[in-house]
Design a protein around this nucleic acid. Structure first.
Length: 638
DNA sequence: GTAGGGTTAG
């Protein structure tokens, strides 16, 4: 907290007290004709506003506080205004005029000068300007983007002291701020103490429980609400998304429509987030069709959500369409599209789009660079990647962070340039993190660099001892080097720490329904048919000359035969088998997997794309694999 | 006579 904040508030008692008397509010000054004011909306440039200001000084209109504050407001709020001019003007006003100060706070809030907004409040309290309801709601709003618990308490005291606590705006803002700070007890106190509650009061409370992950109280409030509007429903959907219950989020959305609540852009963004996580492309397309049918404007948020949904469902064409339809693109929208192309293996297209963005004079941020470096790494574009890293700071003023170095280590590792990897890791200003060691380990396995790989694996286990992937990856490396004796040690150490590999889980959407499979799953109602299909797949794979890569199950089981069965029943194979029997020939099969795909599945799917003449798109925990005509978009690096 | 509250976000 900046220290200026503590000065004027420190005299305020912590326990709210109702003061005996207040200075009476300064009465509004008498009206004066101010003809020049009507010219204000015509000022399209700052210098024009200044000319008008000069005219108002010359004609003494400036001494009318109403006129002066309208001018101050224009300076503070209009797009080509000037906060400095506004502040100077407000400070020069003879009478302290609450509206003028509010307008100045509002302007600073709009420009996200949060600290400045709060320090203006401090000045208000020092200058005997009497703050009103607007002042408090504005400054409370400023507090939500920072954590200023003590300041909020002091403001709360000031509010009570002035008898303003029953203003619906202030009360709702207070609940909101307390909720954002996680102080639900305080939020509840304000809520329970409200003599009358409007829908925003209820929604603020709802939001608090949602934000703090209290599902029980959330549902209690939701059930008790006298009426619910689109915000109430949006809050519920957002809660389900936040706690990772994506099916629940979609279910809420369905109920909302049943109750004929008119949805808005926020609803759609939330639902798209859920649908994206589920990889439910058909439902995502439904949302897109809904947007088109109802002529809903694709703003940058909705556009980015749509681009992201299509990208994460492995449908790049859809993402491009959505991107083109988004009229007002923000940096987020560009990032979503560049990232989407990169993740789906379209590295050159990602680079093209980045250049286009530069030509459009849109300044990239750290995320843009993560996306573009990711594109270079997936596409094996070493020179481009290094060039981007090197121009980040000098050209764009962006300091490379761990994510950027991570991409570059991945890039160089894939290319087998281990000397440069070590050089970069030594010269970078931070210590390598688990992700970096993980990608290096992967590269070492591919390039059979056992020594460096083992080092990376041991560092990885040190940094991420609870992550099952650390052990699996190192075990795969030992298998690669035929160091079988090391594997039982790893297994033992996993057992001792109680680390379990989560069961691989794959989902596939058929006719708008999401079907989930885990390894060796027999729960599906068409299980018999699915396993028949798996057998057929195996037979045809054998004919094509395939041999299972049994090293993939090292950590799981030991018996050779069991290993083979276990491999054949990996969840993605079951999902693909189900896809093959339940969609028309030629239909693209899309599968979402919760963990990385093993290299056995990878070679199987390459063959299956030829045998069944299907495009197979698998999204695993790491990236996308587009299998087509026997090869994969990841070029066997992942 | 001028304004202000709650939901989404790569």
């Amino acid at each position: 907290m900046p220290h200026f904040l503590s000065l004027p508030f420190s005299n305020v008692p912590m326990t709210p007290t109702i003061p005996n008397s207040h200075p009476p509010p300064i009465p509004n000054p008498p009206m004066k004709p101010t003809p020049t004011l009507s010219l204000l909306p015509l000022c399209n440039h700052l210098h024009e506003t200044k000319q008008l200001h000069a005219l108002m000084i010359k004609t003494s209109q400036i001494s009318d506080p109403y006129a002066a504050s309208r001018l101050a407001e224009f300076y503070a709020i209009s797009d080509n205004g000037s906060l400095q001019c506004s502040e100077k003007l407000v400070n020069s006003m003879e009478e302290p005029y609450t509206f003028a100060w509010n307008t100045l706070i509002r302007g600073n809030l709009k420009k996200k000068n949060t600290h400045k907004a709060i320090s203006l409040m401090v000045q208000v309290l020092c200058k005997s300007v009497e703050p009103d309801c607007y002042t408090f709601t504005l400054v409370l709003k400023a507090c939500t983007s920072l954590v200023l618990t003590e300041t909020v308490r002091q403001l709360h005291c000031q509010i009570v002291k002035r008898g303003l606590e029953n203003s619906e705006f202030i009360r709702n803002k207070l609940i909101h701020v307390y909720a954002v700070y996680g102080s639900m007890v305080d939020a509840r106190k304000v809520f329970d103490g409200s003599p009358d509650m409007d829908i925003v009061t209820w929604n603020s409370m709802l939001e608090g429980y949602a934000e703090n992950g209290d599902g029980e109280l959330l549902h209690q409030v939701f059930d008790k609400m006298p009426q619910r509007d689109v915000v109430s429903w949006n809050t519920m959907i957002a809660y389900y998304v936040r706690v990772g219950e994506f099916v629940g989020a979609v279910e809420m959305f369905r109920r909302m429509q049943e109750e004929r609540i008119c949805l808005d852009g926020v609803t759609l963004v939330s639902v798209l987030t859920a649908v994206t996580q589920l990889g439910a492309l058909a439902q995502g397309k439904w949302v897109h069709a809904y947007i088109r049918k109802h002529g809903i404007e694709l703003d940058d948020n909705l556009g980015s959500a749509l681009v992201n949904m299509y990208s994460k469902c492995g449908c790049v064409d859809g993402a491009i369409e959505a991107f083109d339809e988004t009229k007002k693109k923000s940096l987020d929208t560009w990032n979503a599209m560049i990232g989407g192309l990169a993740a789906n293996g379209q590295s050159l297209e990602a680079i093209d789009l980045f250049s286009k963005m530069e030509r459009s004079n849109i300044q990239p941020d750290t995320i843009t660079f993560s996306c573009i470096l990711n594109a270079c790494s997936h596409g094996g574009l070493v020179e481009d990647g290094l060039a981007y890293l090197n121009k980040m700071k000098p050209v764009h003023g962006i300091e490379p962070d761990m994510a950027h170095y991570g991409c570059v280590v991945d890039l160089l590792g894939r290319a087998g340039m281990f000397d440069m990897v070590e050089e970069i890791m030594k010269s970078m200003p931070m210590k390598p993190d688990a992700i970096m060691w993980k990608s290096l380990l992967g590269a070492c396995k591919t390039h059979k660099n056992f020594e460096l790989g083992e080092k990376a694996g041991l560092e990885l286990i040190e940094l991420a001892p609870d992550d099952h992937a650390s052990y699996t990856l190192l075990s795969n490396l030992y298998a690669m080097a035929n160091k079988w004796d090391q594997v039982p040690k790893l297994r033992k150490s996993m057992l001792e720490k109680g680390i379990k590999k989560p069961p691989g889980c794959s989902s596939i959407e058929v006719d708008g329904l999401v079907h989930e499979f885990i390894v060796g799953d027999t729960k599906h109602h068409r299980s018999k048919k699915i396993y028949d299909m798996v057998e057929e797949m195996e037979a045809r794979l054998k004919v094509a000359g395939y041999e299972p890569d049994i090293r993939q199950v090292l950590l799981d089981i030991e018996e050779e035969e069991v290993k083979q069965t276990s491999l054949a029943h990996h969840s993605e194979k079951l999902a693909v088998a189900f896809g093959l029997i339940s969609t028309r020939p030629g239909t693209t099969i899309r599968v979402i997997k919760n963990v990385r795909m093993c290299s056995d599945c990878h070679s199987v799917l390459k063959l299956l794309s030829v045998i069944y003449n299907r495009d197979l798109i698998i999204r695993d925990s790491n990236r996308f694999h587009h299998f087509k005509e026997g090869s994969c978009s990841c070029m066997d690096y992942w």
